[in-house]
Amino acid sequence: MNPTDRKYSKEHEWAKVEADGRVLVGITHYAQDQLGDIVFLDLPSPGDRVEQYKKLGEVESVKAVSDVFAPVSGQVVEVNPELAERPDLVNDDPLEKGWLARISSDTLEQDMDNLLTAEEYEAFLESEAH
């Protein structure tokens, strides 16, 4: 369920390095399931700087607001333009169509090294469940 083409944070975000070296980020299936129906996303603007493990934005469900943290540091180059009209994409397809932002990271290797592999993330979820 958590593909191996990307890495994960303990706050349930994923980061996937694209062919051009930029990083696509989003939240995991587990996270969207916990949040319930997502109704609104407050995301940074292109050009904004984000730091690994610091706040990237907010995700709102009907009766909760949760912070989303950046899995890597860098500059936001794009936020998913579909989400303004279709926040439910994050519920339906969090790993592909429901991506949140594209980040150009200057500390790419180091940041990615800090994150968990799919296997490690699943072990983490397992340990959290007990």
Binding site: V39, F40, E60, S61, V62, K63, A64, V65
Partner: peptide, 12 residues
């Protein structure tokens, strides 16, 4: 749009 309100977002 209740997430704007005090009973959910509290100090924010």
């Amino acid at each position: 749009l209740q997430t704007r309100e005090q009973h959910i977002r509290r100090e924010r």
